[in-house]
């Protein structure tokens, strides 16, 4: 019987959303062919209630336990994954394009010398399961290119979070759990993990940020602009500004977004008091999620936004920072 694997990721003792998406996709692909969906989770400690991944389509979950998994033992982990792959020859291995998922995917593909298709959008399998076709964007997403995978061989495919979506199965069965203590040969320890360095949002460059909170002329002055900064730090994001905000020196010039500033594509862009002139939006319109806070509901930025907030930012921002801090604190205690 063929297997589809999902290389799963855990964050703060919880299965990451993208892993659930990958499981849902694997389920859909496996369904018609009575293939098995296997979630492979490298982690430091057993994860509670992991059998509930059956709800998302996993038939089996394999926990690979080792201190420092996955990031601190990249080579050891790939060696363990490779051994498992050699035993079970899955037809397909799905992983995420996040830093952890991609590293596992690339290292496994390299070690097993199997093809890898990164940042895919669509997987199609012929009815008998012998042919796999994968479509992915090329030329900065302007064109889709289709690839055919070799028959009789495993293939690794990665997806970005948010592309596939999550779907629970209708009649879920708890997943079988197997747990392995991971071991690997000494020669797989060529990289020594030193430490994780947590970014300080205050110094994080806008190019590097996944969350950007930007302020414009609508903030009305340096003092209110600092409220925008508060929101940025609270979300762990970087601060940015429109040109007039940078010209007024409320924020450094190297944080200007737009035609004469920087182009960014963060996961979240919060625009506070920015009208959305083309010179500005050209630098941020490819952001995944856009939130606009503006007192003018007809501002261009508001039209562009996924969440459109009409109101005075001077009133909203202090409440918003408090609310997020409160929720974060609640999350931490539960």
């Amino acid at each position: 019987m063929s297997e589809i694997w999902v290389l799963g990721e855990i964050e703060k003792d919880q299965v990451k959303e993208v892993s659930l998406e990958l499981l849902s996709e694997a389920r859909e692909l496996a369904e018609k062919r009575s293939w098995q969906v296997v979630g492979i989770f490298p982690c430091e400690n057993p994860v509670e209630k992991i059998e509930t991944l059956g709800d998302y389509g996993a038939n089996e979950v394999v926990c690979l336990l080792h201190e420092g998994f996955p990031h601190a033992q990249p080579e050891g982990l790939s060696s363990v994954l490779f051994e498992l792959l050699a035993q079970r020859s899955p037809r397909m291995i799905l992983s995420s394009t996040a830093s952890a998922g991609r590293d596992m995917a690339v290292r496994l593909a390299v070690k097993a010398r199997i093809p890898l298709i990164s940042d895919a959008r669509i997987i199609q399998i012929s009815r008998d399961g012998s042919k796999i076709e994968v479509t992915k964007p090329t030329y900065e997403k302007k064109v889709f290119t289709r690839f055919e995978c070799p028959e009789q061989k495993s293939v690794v495919i990665t997806f970005q979070q948010g592309i596939l979506g999550v779907e629970k199965v209708r009649n879920p069965v708890p997943a079988r759990i197997t747990t392995h203590r991971a071991e690997w040969p000494e020669n797989c320890n060529r990289l020594k993990y030193i430490e994780r360095f947590k970014a300080d949002p205050r110094t994080l460059g806008v190019e590097d940020a996944e969350i950007i909170v930007a302020g414009g002329l609508g903030t009305g002055g340096k003092r209110t602009f600092d409220l925008v900064g508060e929101l940025a730090w609270t979300l762990g994001g970087a601060l940015a500004g429109s040109r007039p905000a940078c010209d007024a020196q409320w924020v450094e010039k190297n944080r200007q977004i737009g035609a004469s500033g920087k182009s960014v594509k963060p996961r979240l862009y919060v625009a506070c008091g920015i009208s959305g002139a083309i010179h500005h939006t050209i630098g941020m319109r490819e952001s995944e999620v856009i939130v606009s806070i503006n007192k003018d509901a007809n501002a261009s930025m508001t039209k562009l936004a996924d969440l459109k907030v009409k109101g005075d930012l001077q009133e909203i921002l202090p409440h918003l920072v408090d609310e997020i801090n409160k929720r974060k604190a609640e999350k931490a205690t539960t």
């Binding site: 064109v143 289709r146 690839f147 055919e148 979506g165």
Partner: peptide, 19 residues
């Protein structure tokens, strides 16, 4: 190694997101 084969290109054709 068995390579993947490029079989063609097309304009982006979306697949609906689950849920």
């Amino acid at each position: 190694v068995s390579p993947v084969t490029l079989i063609g290109s097309a304009l982006p054709r979306p697949k609906p997101k689950k849920g």
